[in-house]
Amino acid sequence: MMECLGSAPAASTATVLENRQVGPGCYRMCLENDYIARCTLPGQFVHVRIPGSSLDPLLRRPFSVCLVEPSNGAFLVLYQVVGRGTKMLSALRPGDRLDVLGPLGRGFEMPRAGAGGGGDDGSGGDGGNSIGRGSGAVRVALVAGGLGIAPLIMLSHALFRSGVGFVFVVGARSGELLAGLDLLPRAPGRDAVLSGRSASPEPAGPEIVQGAHVPPNGCDTATDDAGPRYEVHVVTEDGSMGRRGLVTDALRDVLRGGDIACAYACGPAGMLREVARMGETFRVPVQVSLEERMACGLGACLGCAVKAREATARSGRTAYLRVCADGPVFWVEEVDLDGIG
């Protein structure tokens, strides 16, 4: 299994710059830590703990890095209050400190710059797994369920900088649970968010938002002066924002377009299984970012296991993979998604 290609993780502390509620139980926390901001790759995560003597809750909590701003030494996480650990996180105020271990794990495998070209040498599958299948494949799809949007936001920025066009399909049960739409490349309010001053409301976006056409100032990796195009498709189960339905309904329409070279997904287990099925149907390779209960975060304790697909197991590897070190991003061919969630 491929080890993380990025920088070695470091154990350090981060200062809270901002920690605000962005929806029912949904929070966005901006933290200052230069190393994380400089070294994190899209899809990697940080393992955090509130410092102090309390041993209850005992373990650290993993969070995907949602966005980094290396020039400010700042990074962002999105989280939902689901238990006592996240409840305690939500009470942190600017100036408070947090123990941070990271960046950790294997992130998303990027398509080659220039859109759609090249295969992937390191994926877990066969030739059918290549990102970009010949000429004409120019875009990738990002599929987010709820706060699963977090790692995909950072990916969207990397794609944008690389000049790769994308379709971002974002879904939640209802509109108030959609977080992070204002963090997409060049979206209003983004610059202010990372400086910790913004209180701009979530945009009540239309069903399809046309993305920026011009790369941001200072972006030196865009491949042409027009910049990549991207679309955002918003779907809610109750229809309170965007299209009514499931995020996978919208994805199916996108895949029917036939120009999607690769899909990246993060969200509930059921959604990931459905995205994987669609990837198979439309012959689009899919990478998913997974969650599991986690202890060390470093690949030592084998606690955060997910079952490997039979083909992977047969090739001589152990039958379980570690979300923290072998993932959290996997090609769907690598893992048995029926066993998660």
Binding site: L55, L58, R293, M294, L302, G303, C304, A305, K307, T318
Partner: peptide, 27 residues
């Protein structure tokens, strides 16, 4: 011999403690 270990979940946090059932996964 190599051991695959137990199916997830393998961890459960308790008050000031941790339950594990990794199942001797090793190469």
């Amino acid at each position: 011999e190599p051991r695959a270990g137990n199916p997830p979940p393998r961890l459960w946090e308790t008050a000031c403690g941790l339950l594990n059932s990794v199942g001797l996964q090793n190469p």
